[in-house]
Design a binder for these strands. Structure first.
Lengths: 201, 201
DNA sequence: GTCTATAGGCCGATAGAC
DNA sequence: GTCTATCGGCCTATAGAC
């Protein structure tokens, strides 16, 4: 990889690549299309990234870093779980998960990088859940934070993906259900949480 | 589209296409690769499918039909929810969701077909949930079947996708949690279910 | 660092013989 | 229905001038 990491041309290339990926999917990302969108010659793309693999890797790292920053901000909010949920249901957010995961099918290095990013995000999500449940006195071995994180993240991604296809069967019910759940453990505003379940009887 | 729908060559082409899609992702599916895998000339692919769009559409319909058959079988089992869960967590099952969804980004006809298939599957899933909750006396407006269907399906797909990347953080917790949930509403074997929650206090 | 020029490959699709 | 032959396009990547 040549050139300064903070080079403006390099940044323009990644920005154009990300736009194409959002609009047309990863398979449409080519050095020629990137160059056309950024107003450059396609050979310049190869100057900054010696291969498309390298470009996709740099693009993922950029997106992952943005996501991490947003995640960190969400943690500092009054109701971090609501903030995380809002973030993960934002289809314009820096996720692009579908594309990168499909792209990673047979690109070893990218696959590992995405797995790392996924795990980091999951651990943060689970840690926040654990902390909130603990604070509200709702911690219970039957509600493992890691499991809840997967249910929430999975539902968000599934609905994002289906919405992109133009399908929304059951989405409103799921969103209401999850919002109700979040309100219960984190409060409707910043007030006290109510009991979720009764262990006995 | 030419040729008999039950033609053996046609079937071999679709079978080869499906294999390539599983192994290398949709972007690797080309008439030449299909032909190589099926031991045919690439032009034959164009004889049976006048365009790749048409081929992908036929492939999706084939996969969707298989899925529908399995779904129908699951409904007839003693514990349909357990059967559905097992089915959706089977990474070798006829899902291929990731690939088709990524592929559909800018293929209008395929997008509509996938949306239709998604909704049909979702409705069946939700209907089974509604029926079981009803039978067990657990029906309650706070647990809308459509929402539960999305949570279960989303978690299954997320874990499938992550497992393919080599990541499994929290998966065991989530699987245990969901299995516990299914056991509660559908019984551990085929026995009676226990109460899930108390509405009052 | 950006340009011109170009090699070399895989692709979808069609024409026409048999 | 399957074959041979082939067109035109877009792709990644490199060489070498400035």
């Amino acid at each position: 990889m040549n050139g300064d990491k903070n080079n403006a041309t390099r940044a323009a290339i990644l920005e154009a690549a990300e736009q194409i990926m959002r609009e047309e999917g990863y398979a449409a990302v080519s050095s020629r299309k990137i160059a056309a969108k950024a107003g450059l010659k396609s050979q310049l793309v190869h100057y900054y990234f010696r291969s498309m693999d390298e470009l996709f890797l740099a693009l993922f790292q950029r997106v992952d870093e943005q996501r991490f920053q947003l995640l960190t901000q969400a943690l500092a909010s009054k109701r971090p779980l609501h903030a995380l949920w809002k973030m993960s249901t934002d289809t314009n957010g820096p996720w692009l998960n579908k594309e990168f995961i499909a792209l990673a099918t047979h690109r070893e290095q990218l696959r590992e990088e995405i797995a790392r990013g996924t795990e980091r995000t999951r651990r943060i999500y689970a840690a926040v859940l654990a902390r909130v449940l603990e604070e509200r006195g709702l911690a219970h071995e039957a509600w493992p934070p890691a499991a809840l994180a997967i249910l929430l993240d999975g539902a968000a991604r599934l609905m994002n993906s289906e919405a992109a296809l133009g399908s929304s069967t059951g989405h409103q019910e799921a969103k209401n259900f999850i919002m109700h759940f979040l309100d219960q453990i984190e409060g409707q505003t910043a007030g006290p949480a109510v009991a979720l379940y009764n262990s006995g009887t």
